[in-house]
């Protein structure tokens, strides 16, 4: 489970800690088995070390201080939660039936069905925000005091040049025959129904780059290209 990126706001960004906390708590109450909490500055940049740590501390406070983890299912028996769960299930079943009618998820994606559903929902959400029908604190209500600024992570061009240099030196120093054999073997396995993982691991051990491994697989599988999207 990941907290919702689209609920974060660039305005008054420190408020995002509160949003993430509520969503993290909801996830735990819902019995999630894995949880990723977003950092408060993710609408503005990649997270800083500090903001990533606050996201981690949010989980730790929910886990260790709130007490919700003391019960396997704290909301068990809640009429309201159960009724919402039933509704969600019914609506999910209806969507699955529609996908089945199209012929399965692959044709559905090719015809743009899930893409359209997602685009439609996000458009309606944005319209409600723009029209003020849906309140977003600090964006369309309670906007005064937008002076909170989050310190942002800057990634300079030296990161790219440094990585290029590292890759060059790895390429120059690796065992070339072993590397070539590993990629060739990977290519061979990709054309069968065999497990790819051992061949990928051997490629990694022979210092093949992620780009080389993906490129080898791409020769066999191709690349998904989103066509021009009908809106």
């Amino acid at each position: 489970m990941q907290t919702a990126g689209c609920s974060l706001t660039a305005q008054q960004p420190i408020n995002n800690v509160v949003r993430v906390t509520i969503q993290a708590l909801a996830a735990v109450l819902g019995g999630t088995q894995s949880l990723h909490t977003n950092a408060l500055d993710e609408t503005l940049a990649l997270p800083t070390e500090d903001s990533a740590r606050i996201a981690l501390r949010t989980q730790q406070i929910v886990a260790e201080e709130s007490g919700v983890a003391n019960s396997i299912d704290p909301l068990a028996g809640s009429y309201f939660v159960e009724s919402l769960t039933d509704r969600l299930e019914q609506e999910a079943q209806a969507t699955i039936r529609r996908i089945d009618q199209i012929g399965g998820i692959v044709p559905a994606i090719e015809q743009g069905f899930p893409q359209r559903e997602i685009a439609e929902a996000s458009y309606l959400y944005q319209k409600q925000v723009d029209d003020g029908d849906k309140i977003v604190v600090g964006v369309n209500r309670f906007t005064e005091g937008d002076t909170m600024k989050a310190p942002l992570l800057k990634i300079g061009p030296e990161v790219e040049t440094g990585q290029v240099a590292r890759l060059r030196s790895v390429r120059a120093s690796r065992d070339r025959p072993r590397h070539a054999r590993a990629l060739e073997a990977l290519h061979g396995v990709a054309r069968t129904r065999e497990n790819l993982m051992p061949a990928i691991l051997e490629a990694v051990r022979s210092y093949a780059s992620v780009g080389e491994i993906c490129g080898t697989l791409e020769k066999v599988f191709g690349t998904y290209r989103e066509g021009r999207v009908q809106l």
Partner: peptide
């Protein structure tokens, strides 16, 4: 692509002819 699609759709609804390229 959430934002790009919202903007494309909003511009289309406002009367513009809009082409959205898709990702990547």
């Amino acid at each position: 692509d959430r934002g790009a699609k919202i903007i494309a759709r909003a511009l289309r609804d406002a009367g513009f002819e809009v082409v959205y390229t898709g990702l990547h």
